[in-house]
């Protein structure tokens, strides 16, 4: 086919558990559009599910932006999760397995990090948290 898909941003507001499902479904659709394998689509959807749930649990509301990008011969899917919640006091600890302040499994952030290729957390206590994660795939000449 011709040109790769144009970078478009999909925004999903996260205010309830229904939005968690819709965010991960939109992420899967976009990943499919970008040519990711069905295994990668599942991995991306699972990572989105975890960070969307984190928004609900800690910040009550926020949003998830999904975008396809190109970098050389790589296609990428970028997921940005933003909230204006309480922030994470200790990001390093929050990225450790089993660390949870919510009584959950403590697998949300570290789990999502393992699923994706790039993972970055910026959090300011009292201001909010932004999680940026990316998954890459090599574009095939076809």
């Amino acid at each position: 086919m011709g040109a790769p898909p144009v970078a478009e941003e999909l925004l999903v507001a996260i205010t309830s558990d229904v939005d968690v499902v819709s965010a991960r479904q939109k992420g899967r659709e976009l990943a499919a559009e970008a040519g990711f394998s069905s295994g990668d689509q599942t991995v991306i959807a699972a990572a989105i599910s975890e960070i969307a749930r984190n928004i609900l649990m800690y910040a009550k509301r926020g949003e998830i932006a999904l975008r396809i990008v190109m970098n050389g011969d790589l296609d990428g899917l970028i997921v940005v999760a933003r909230d204006q919640g309480p922030g994470i006091p200790d990001v390093t600890r929050a990225l450790q397995d089993g660390y949870s302040t919510s009584g959950g499994l403590g697998l949300g952030l570290p789990g999502a990090r393992r699923l994706m290729d790039d993972f970055d957390v910026v959090s300011i206590p009292g201001k909010g948290t932004t999680v940026t994660m990316k998954k890459w795939r090599r574009r095939h000449a076809s």
Binding site: S38, G39, V43, D97, L107, G111, R114, L115
Partner: peptide
Amino acid sequence: QPEVAFAMVQLGL
């Protein structure tokens, strides 16, 4: 499903 199992293991579930 196989993909689901893969993602679960990666997540540590």
